[in-house]
């Protein structure tokens, strides 16, 4: 290679942006999470409020906040619904497309991928209206056969209502990822099995799914990270439902603490907890499945 400095020059823009917009915010959040405001005297006047070290007290406050644990459990339950349903659907649809035993493949593939073009906010608006009993065709259909459908936005159902929006929005993208991996499998890997009389389902289960294992691992990981960050869907549905509190998910609590209560210290501590938890869960998951995803191709 000719110029020694060349790779560094190519990397400079990325490194500068990385430092400013990823590393610095993370560091700053960590710093703020250890600080608090000290009010001296009556708290009036410019000099009466000063920032001091707070130790781990913000973390203590965050973790013992009566609204934090329920929001974590809620997102946990939400993830247990969304990730398996979304990836299960995506895998089944991708396998059906790949098997090629249908004439509606191109149409259905495009239709199922279409929701990826719809922002989560818009998806939540559309489903939000469809959940309203006065609009919902499902409520209409059920009531015409004499069943009173439950209100999708009532407290017992709202978790599923939000989960449905995420599943609707994410299935198509994951299906395309898995379908692309399936198309890349060389035919001779399973033609022999087919000649020996193996059914499509046996071929899918014994050959195709194991071969696309790495893709499944990556789609699982990215879905998990996205799930832990759920924010846009419940925020958008809030005007349509009084069952979604301002601390419905951990990230909504971060937003409320930072911008409604002006308690950026507590918000920073909660952010750090979410970031660490996400990192531990995703790293632990990669270790658990023993994946060498992300390894350098040397």
């Amino acid at each position: 290679m000719r110029t020694k400095s060349a790779p560094y020059l190519f990397l400079t823009p990325a490194l500068v942006l990385f430092a400013l917009f990823l590393a610095a915010p993370i560091g700053y959040a960590g710093y703020l999470s250890l600080r608090r405001v000290k009010v001296s005297g009556l708290g009036l006047g410019a000099g009466s409020r000063s920032e001091v070290w707070a130790g781990l007290s913000n973390y203590g406050r965050s973790l013992t906040d009566p609204e934090f644990v329920p929001s974590v459990l809620r997102v946990g339950a939400y993830g247990l619904i969304v990730v398996p349903c979304m990836l299960g659907l995506a895998l089944v649809l991708a396998l059906l497309l790949d098997a090629g035993r249908t004439r509606v493949g191109t149409f259905t593939r495009t239709a199922i991928f279409l929701p990826y073009a719809v922002p989560a906010v818009i998806a939540s608006l559309l489903w939000g209206f469809l959940y309203l009993p006065r609009v919902s065709p499902i409520v209409d259909a059920l009531s015409s056969v004499g069943i009173t459908a439950p209100d999708a936005l009532s407290s017992g159902w709202v978790l599923y209502a939000v989960a449905n929006i995420a599943i609707w929005g994410g299935t198509g993208f994951n299906m395309i990822v898995l379908y692309t991996a399936l198309r890349a499998i060389p035919t001779d890997l399973f033609e022999a099995a087919r000649i020996d009389g193996a059914s499509d389902i046996q071929i899918a289960w014994r050959i195709k799914i194991p071969v696309i294992g790495p893709s499944l691992v990556m789609t699982f990981l990215f879905s998990l990270i996205a799930t832990l960050q759920v924010f846009a869907e419940p925020m958008t549905l809030r005007p349509l439902s009084n069952t979604i509190s301002t601390t419905w998910t951990p990230l909504m609590k971060v937003y409320r603490d930072a911008f409604v209560r002006n308690d950026i210290y507590s918000a920073a501590a909660t952010s750090v907890i979410i970031a660490v938890a996400t990192f531990v869960i995703s790293y632990g998951f990669l270790k658990f499945v023993g994946s060498r995803a992300f390894s350098q191709e040397n």
Binding site: L93, R101, T102, G105, T108, A111, W127, F129, T171
Partner: peptide
């Protein structure tokens, strides 16, 4: 390869689910 009605029906159901809100809007 014979076409499979089951596969066609399942794929069309998936497409219907994804198109429902789009049709509504």
């Amino acid at each position: 390869k014979r076409t499979s009605p089951t596969a066609t029906v399942l794929l069309l159901l998936g497409a219907a689910y994804c198109l429902l809100p789009v049709l509504w809007v």
